[in-house]
Computed example of a mutant assay.
Amino acid sequence: MTFTLIFKDISEERDIPKESYTIKDLLNDLELSSQTIVPKQNGELVIEESEIHDDDEIRLIQIIYGG
């Protein structure tokens, strides 16, 4: 089972490593903070607890902020 990850210049097929693999698990694997990333699953905004399923497209959008 695989999903497509789109993040910055990356667009790749990735294996789903375990049952109940979530957006939060993916962010942890990529060492990204949920405070600086907006996740979209199949074009819809989702929360970290959303499970990733076979053939999903996961797009991670980096939030830019500062002061």
Results as ranks from 00 to 15, higher is better:
Met1Ser: 14
Met1Asn: 12
Met1Ala: 13
Met1His: 13
Met1Pro: 13
Thr2Leu: 10
Phe3Asp: 04
Thr4Asp: 11
Leu5His: 00
Ser11His: 15
Ser11Leu: 15
Ser11Asp: 15
Ser11Thr: 15
Ser11Lys: 15
Glu12Ala: 11
Glu13Arg: 08
Glu13Trp: 03
Arg14His: 07
Asp15Thr: 13
Ile16Pro: 09
Pro17Lys: 06
Pro17Tyr: 04
Lys18Val: 13
Lys18Tyr: 13
Glu19Val: 09
Ser20Cys: 12
Ser20His: 14
Tyr21Pro: 03
Tyr21Gly: 02
Tyr21Lys: 04
Thr22Val: 10
Thr22Asn: 10
Thr22Glu: 10
Thr22Phe: 08
Ile23Asp: 02
Ile23Lys: 02
Ile23Pro: 02
Lys24Leu: 04
Asp25Pro: 01
Leu26Arg: 01
Leu27Thr: 02
Asp29Asn: 15
Leu30His: 13
Leu30Met: 15
Glu31Cys: 06
Ser33Asn: 14
Ser33His: 09
Ser33Arg: 08
Ser34Tyr: 10
Ser34Asp: 14
Thr36Phe: 04
Ile37Asn: 01
Ile37Arg: 00
Ile37Trp: 00
Val38Asp: 06
Pro39Ala: 05
Lys40Arg: 12
Lys40Tyr: 13
Lys40Asn: 04
Lys40Ile: 02
Asn42Cys: 15
Gly43Pro: 07
Glu44Met: 08
Leu45Asp: 07
Val46Asp: 04
Val46Pro: 03
Ile47His: 05
Ile47Gln: 07
Glu48Ala: 09
Ser50Thr: 09
Ser50Glu: 05
Glu51Asp: 10
Ile52Cys: 02
Ile52Asn: 00
His53Thr: 08
Asp54Arg: 10
Asp54Trp: 02
Asp55His: 11
Asp56Ser: 04
Glu57Leu: 02
Glu57Arg: 01
Ile58Val: 15
Ile58Asn: 04
Ile58Gly: 09
Ile58Thr: 06
Arg59Ile: 05
Ile61Glu: 03
Ile61Asp: 03
Gln62Ala: 08
Ile63Phe: 10
Tyr65Arg: 07
Tyr65Gly: 09
Gly66Gln: 08
Gly66Tyr: 04
Gly66Ile: 03
Gly67Ala: 08
Gly67His: 03
Gly67Ser: 08
